[in-house]
Nucleic acid binder design. Structure first.
Lengths: 105, 105
DNA sequence: AATACATATGAAAACTTCTTCATATGAAGA
DNA sequence: TCTTCATATGAAGAAGTTTTCATATGTATT
C-alpha cells in the first residue's frame, strides 16, 4: 500500500496542530525537563502533559531519557527548529498582523 | 497582546492537519487548477473543496487568480515546498515505515 | 517490602472541526 | 436579460480530538 507525502504529513501536522503541544515544544526548546516540572511550568495537569508528550514522542518530535525517578524530555531540534523557521519566515511575509491564518474571514 | 511563535504556528498547522487539504496541495503543486477540476480530480464534492481552499487561502498557502468564469488556484511553493522538505527529511530519518507519527502505540 | 515520588493510561465527557446539503452569488455569452 | 457554467456560503448533523478524573505502573530509598 503506497502512501503519498500527504499521508505521511498528516500525522505530523496533526501532532503540531495543538496549542498545548506547541507550548510544550516551546518550553522544552528552552530547557529539557521532566513531566512534572513541565506541567507546573505550563500550569496544566500532569496527566494532560503526559498524554501530549506521548503524541509528540510517537512522532519523534521529542525524545526522552530516564534519570533516576525522573524522565527528561528534549526536543528534536533539527526538525522542530527547521519547521519553525519556515513558519516564521512565512508569517513575516504573509501574516503582518500575526495570526492571519486563524483570523475569521 | 503579545503572541508567541506557538500561537502563530497553531493556525498554520491546523490548516495543514487535514487530509483533504493536503491532497489539494499535492494536486495544485503539480498543476494549478480551478475548484471544479480539482473536485473532479480528487473525487470530492465541489462544495467541500471550496471550503477547504478558503482555509488554505486564508493562511496564504495557496492564492487564486480569476480567468473568466474560472478561478485558478496555485500553491505558495516557497512555504509549502519548504515545509514538505523538512517533513520529508524528518520522515526519512525517523519514520522508516512511513507514517510512524500516526501509528498506534 | 513498605513508602514516597514520578510517570502513564483508559474511558467518558467536553469541545472542535469537517462534511454535506441546499441554495446563493458571480461571470460571461446568446 | 435570460441561461448556463462556475464558485461560494450557511447551518446542522457527523466525525474526530482533547481534557479530565481516577487509578495503575514504575523507580528508588529506607
Amino acid at each position: 500500500m503506497k502512501r503519498g507525502l500527504s499521508d505521511i504529513c498528516y500525522g505530523f501536522f496533526s501532532t503540531l496542530a495543538n496549542p498545548t503541544r506547541l507550548a510544550i515544544l516551546e518550553k522544552l526548546r528552552a530547557t529539557p525537563m521532566n513531566v512534572t516540572d513541565l506541567a507546573a511550568s505550563l500550569e496544566q495537569e500532569q496527566s494532560m502533559v503526559s498524554h501530549n508528550l506521548r503524541t509528540l514522542e510517537r512522532c519523534n518530535l521529542v525524545h526522552s531519557e530516564r534519570r533516576g525517578k525522573k524522565k527528561v524530555y528534549a526536543v528534536n531540534e533539527e526538525t522542530v527548529g527547521g519547521i519553525f523557521r519556515v513558519v516564521e519566515n512565512h508569517a513575516e511575509r504573509h501574516c503582518p498582523f500575526h495570526g492571519a491564518c486563524s483570523e475569521l474571514k
